[in-house]
């Protein structure tokens, strides 16, 4: 039998990976869309290359931000389930997205520039990034469900 803490930890790691990788890919597409809107032609090769560069250049820092956000949000969601008994498939995605939104807000307040992550300058970009976190939260919920089933 897997130790009690191992499944949530595995779920956390998978959620971190999904949120980080999806977020990195999403923000790349938003940045490229902004460049394309200025008239530049973005070939598929360029798109793939830039996405890969961001996985190397952007994802590590973003992973740190996501890790802190999820490390707070997911346990809090577990604790809060007693008062807000939502289905796990809704509770954890919501918690992960809210946690990341709070992380964006705090980072923007602390960083010297108005907006740290360029893709979050727009509502659509922010929601897309939070969608990635919700996907991570869903993975976490699935892992927990696997343990308890």
């Amino acid at each position: 039998m897997m130790a009690r803490w191992k499944t949530p930890l595995l779920g956390f790691v998978l959620a971190l990976l999904v949120t980080t990788l999806s977020g990195s890919l999403i923000q790349t597409q938003f940045n490229l869309a902004a460049i394309a809107a200025l008239g530049a032609e973005i070939s598929l090769t360029t798109r793939l290359g830039t996405s890969a560069q961001d996985l190397l250049g952007f994802a590590p820092l973003y992973a740190a931000m996501v890790a802190v956000a999820l490390a707070v949000a997911l346990p809090l969601a577990t604790l809060g389930w007693r008062w807000l008994p939502l289905p796990p498939g809704l509770l954890y995605p919501l918690a992960a997205a809210l946690g990341l939104w709070l992380a964006f807000t705090i980072a923007d307040a602390l960083a010297p520039m108005p907006t740290l992550i360029a893709a979050t300058r727009s509502l659509s970009g922010t929601l897309a990034m939070l969608g990635g976190a919700a996907l991570g939260g869903l993975v976490y919920a699935c892992c927990r469900a696997g343990r308890t089933s």
């Binding site: 940045n31 902004a34 973005i42 560069q53 952007f58 590590p60 820092l61 960083a111 740290l116």
Partner: peptide, 21 residues
């Protein structure tokens, strides 16, 4: 700027794929 740049964003993200055009 910002279509061409030899730099990347403070987060490490590419702002543009083009250094020069």
């Amino acid at each position: 700027w910002p279509l061409t740049s030899h730099g990347v964003d403070y987060t490490g993200a590419r702002i543009t794929p083009f250094r020069e055009l």
